[in-house]
Design a protein around this nucleic acid. Structure first.
Length: 662
DNA sequence: ATAATAACGAGA
DNA sequence: CTCGTTATTATC
């Protein structure tokens, strides 16, 4: 009752009585701010960045108070129902970033905010973490020795020290970093973070998974001590995660390391944004609107005027584009340094007969690989064997030169839907009757077959006294000791070996190379380099593949830049991402047709499709030049809004930069 | 979900 | 032409 009478007596706040609120509803046509009155008793606490509850269309919904305003164009405003908490979880920087990310991905602000801010945990808000007693950020930074800018691991790289110097001087260098084989990359990131923090600026560093995060956390602890950074990942659990988030939003720590969602960490006065291994598909958010951590990070760096570091052993076409447009500079070692640090990498000719015939029970390991493994084990060093996971789509390549077969109409990849079907384009659906290879003129096609992992077991049997350990989907090893052992791992699950592996063997390479995926080559190289980088200096790497294939060449020469350059120029020619922007529209055939009916695409946007998708659905692709990317995203978002306002029953999934395009 | 509003149709 | 009822649509 008291509550109710209070309500009747509510008066607007004396200043800036209007709260502009993002309501947490998923409908795209409601993706704008709504005005509410701030009652006088919430004047002090209902600040921008807080969570609120508002009555919206008759029901109570959560919302984000984005800004306070003096007046509103709407004549009759409702009051905020209540303030969930005075905690300001959104900084204005992150609110703006979230809006920009939503726009880029044809999504809604509310969807992005749900990704950017972890769920509230009231206990975590009330019981401040121990470091809450630490001096507020207005105080001078603690008296520590300035972190070194010269004589670090960065000295091995051309422009490496320059990068650190620029960070120290509070500038905003932007770099694409090609890490040397064997590089202790967490240490390098920690050094860059320390220099930035010493200059009084914030740092956010994102890595693909929890294992990498543990390594980075350890490196940061070594350089910064225990209390000057936090880790932020969904795997921490709700309380710890929210607590870590709060210590960033409250300005208690300036350095945050985390997995993809940490890209949005509300670190104050951010000066450096780092992403490690941006080609790893874990950086792609699986929830709408499916933003990629690298794109979020680059957007943030651009908007906040922060430095950016995009690092990895290998290099994505997207990173190459940053270099070629002049947005970022290359940080890489010269050839002499590289030669000194590289393991010996040798190809063995691939024997397709071996992989193709499942009846070949005695799959022999190529003798080179066998010898390299034996030598390493004899020296009591572990051996890493990388085998790809099964289950890739059967794609089609030229029987003669093995170049991926492409559609003559739209350059999309050809693939088989069932084993005896005629190959068809995965983009436009056109059936490829008589294919002629543009590279060698060959007319034959072959379906690639995923190789058996039996080879790895064979390897184990070949060394009966040596323990064989596996690391993969079910059980992932983090580290193995520096003793003789055969470690069989799938890509991404390779444990680090203390002191490095004596030998690394890369098996069944064709399974990776002939995947029905735009990024097959780039991804294969990334996985090989990531594994090969774990070899000890002077160690051996054997890749079971034909050394004349460009991707294999890039590995042998350890030249990710050369391959990325090639890859990007090819994608330019074929108008593939990132040279062009692509969006996929997936849903029931009638729903997709309905959306296409409502959308106003710019004239130079192309529509490809339809092709059948999972569960009887249909898919179109929209392709547009990069200059028109924003326009296309806006048009798609508007069209989904028209549909949701009409209460159209079947949803259409709109995915800008879908990673599984093909 | 629900409240305001437009649209509609029957009876005066 | 008005009143009461039902679709429509916007949602502060």
């Amino acid at each position: 009752m008291a509550n109710r009478s209070n309500r009747a007596e509510r008066v607007p706040a004396p200043e800036l009585p209007v709260a502009r609120v993002c309501v947490d509803v998923p409908l795209p046509h409601l993706d704008r701010l709504f005005d509410y009155l701030v009652p006088a008793d919430l004047h002090e606490t209902a600040q921008p960045g807080t969570r609120v509850k508002v009555r919206f269309a008759g029901q109570l919904v959560d919302g984000w108070l984005i800004e306070r305003a003096a007046e509103s164009a709407v004549p009759k405003l409702a009051y905020l129902d209540r303030l969930v908490s005075p905690e300001r979880v959104l900084t204005s920087e992150i609110a703006g970033l979230a809006r920009a990310v939503a726009d880029r991905y044809a999504g809604s602000l509310a969807d992005v905010l749900r990704l950017a801010v972890p769920p509230r945990h009231a206990r975590a808000e009330q019981s401040p973490p121990p470091e809450a007693d630490a001096p507020p950020e207005t105080d001078a930074p603690p008296e520590t020795d300035a972190p070194p800018v010269t004589g670090t691991g960065w000295s091995e790289y051309q422009a490496g020290e320059g990068f650190l110097r620029a960070l120290r001087d509070g500038k905003r260098p932007r770099a694409v970093w090609s890490a040397l084989p064997g590089e202790d990359w967490p240490a390098r990131i920690a050094e860059a973070a320390a220099v930035t923090a010493a200059a009084g600026k914030g740092v956010v560093a994102v890595v693909p998974d929890a294992r990498d995060l543990d390594r980075l956390d350890a490196a940061l602890t070594k350089v910064l001590g225990k209390d000057r950074h936090v880790t932020l990942a969904a795997g921490l659990g709700p309380a710890k995660r929210y607590r870590a988030f709060l210590s960033a939003s409250r300005g208690q720590v300036k350095v945050v390391a985390g997995t993809r969602a940490a890209t949005f960490a509300p670190v104050h006065d951010v000066g450096l944004l780092v992403i490690w291994d941006d080609g790893d598909d874990l950086h792609a958010e699986p929830r709408a609107p499916y933003p990629h951590a690298r794109e979020v990070l680059l957007t943030r760096a651009q908007r906040a005027g922060a430095a950016a570091l995009v690092g990895g052993f290998s290099r994505t076409a997207e990173a190459q584009l940053l270099l070629e447009t002049g947005w970022a500079r290359e940080v890489a070692a010269d050839r002499a340094t590289l030669r000194r640090r590289m393991p010996t990498i040798t190809p063995t000719g691939d024997d397709p007969q071996l992989a193709r015939d499942p009846g070949a029970a005695t799959a022999r390991l190529p003798s080179l690989a066998w010898e390299a493994a034996r030598a390493a084990l004899k020296a009591d060093a572990p051996v890493l064997v990388q085998v790809p996971r099964r289950g890739y789509l059967p794609s089609v390549s030229c029987a003669t030169c093995r170049a991926p077969a492409r559609c003559t109409a739209c350059s999309g990849p050809l693939a088989l839907r069932s084993s005896h079907a005629v190959p068809a384009c995965r983009w436009c659906g056109r059936v490829a009757g008589d294919h002629v290879c543009p590279h060698c003129g060959g007319r034959g096609l072959r379906a690639s077959v995923t190789g058996a992992r039996r080879t790895a077991e064979e390897l184990g049997r070949a060394f009966p006294d040596i323990p064989v350990r596996t690391s993969g989907r079910d059980e992932v090893l983090t580290e193995v000791p520096a003793t003789a052992a055969v470690v069989v791992a799938t890509p991404g699950a390779e444990p680090v070996a203390e002191g490095g592996y004596g030998a690394v063997v890369l098996l069944d390479t064709w399974a990776l190379l002939t995947r029905a995926d735009l990024r097959a080559g780039e991804e294969a190289l990334r996985r090989w380099m990531t594994a090969a980088a774990l070899a000890k200096s002077g160690g051996r790497v054997v890749v079971v593949a034909d050394g004349s294939v460009p991707v294999v060449q890039a590995l042998l020469r350890w030249d990710p830049g050369w391959y990325a350059e090639r890859e990007l120029s090819e994608r330019r020619e074929l108008r593939f991402p990132p040279a062009a922007r692509m969006a996929s529209l997936t849903g029931a055939a009638t729903a997709v047709a309905d959306l296409l009916d409502a959308v106003h695409l710019p004239p130079d946007a192309e529509l490809l499709g339809p092709v059948p998708a999972d569960q009887g659905q249909e898919r179109y692709l929209v392709r547009a030049p990069r200059a028109k990317a924003a326009e296309v995203a806006a048009a798609l978002h508007a069209a989904t809004g028209v549909r949701s306002a009409r209460k159209a029953p079947d949803p259409v999934r709109v995915q800008v930069d879908a990673t599984d395009l093909f």
